[in-house]
Amino acid sequence: MDYSLDELTRAYRLMKTIREFEERIRSEYQQGKLPGFIHMYRNQEAIAVGACLDMTNDDYIASTHRGHGHCIAKGCELEGMMLELACKQDGLCNGKGGSMHIADMTKGMLGANAIVGGGPPIAAGAALTAKTLKTGGVSMAFIGDGASDQGTVAEALNLAVVLQLPMIFMYENNFYAEFTRNPKPEGRIAERAGAFGMPSIVVDGSDFYAVHAACREAIERGRNGGGPTAIEAVSARYYGHFEGDPQDYRDGAELRAQRAAGDPLPRFLEDPRTAALNANSIADIDSAVFAELDRTVELALAAADPTPDKLYTDVYVDYEGRAMQ
């Protein structure tokens, strides 16, 4: 498959943005400047970007608790994201969602999800909309290896097959379900999804080109009425389950080896297919990414909190929530 310079530029810019976004918010979080829980996506960048590169705003994704990378890959603006992670009024969700529930309907990003396995039924519904209204859109659920054991995921797999929905089950197998190593061998998740009656494939999640090729095929299948696809992208979780988890349960030597071997950025840059992206343009992208992060962090930390009356807004469309009477 040939890649245009525009595609290579977008792929690199998005992966680099995710990488540096995560490093920056991790640093801000450690300084106590961001509330709640955050879950780092480092080293899984090629999965989000490879998965979403061919999507438009009429395609949908349902994300997970580890969702910042999915947001960026799907086109969410850093400013709105940064404001939301800081839980400010002008954030994507007016500060009411935060990191674990961030969403952007204008981009077809149907929400991060703090319930493991919560997203796939919702993504199936978005696929049903695309099919019923004949929009040509597809819907993708991101699913961790931990979530792969949830009943909701099995129900969504089955429904997608029965209704032949334009849907992609994008598994990200980083081998850790929170603090517990998932005992399933590589490929078992794809095998299980395939048993529902859909094509399934295992790809190297640190190889952008492998992820993108698999997703391009799955998206085309969905757009052409060919039904759902499952993809198991194999990766290694770089940081802990949530930020602040010291990962004492992991073997240090193994973790260091996985971190180096699983880094998708050098792998992308060293690939001959990336040659058209020259050193100058990479440097330009890098400096633009850092500048945008500086700008948005500064803006988000200084931005206004929601006023107390906002507690009651947006519970229902036609009336507000309330304290009592």
Partner: peptide, 21 residues
């Protein structure tokens, strides 16, 4: 008609409502 799959029925109906049905 759906399979006997209440999480998928309710969840998919929610996702469909969120996106235009």
């Amino acid at each position: 008609d759906t399979p006997i799959t209440e999480s998928a029925i309710v969840g998919a109906a929610g996702g469909a409502a969120l996106t235009g049905l």
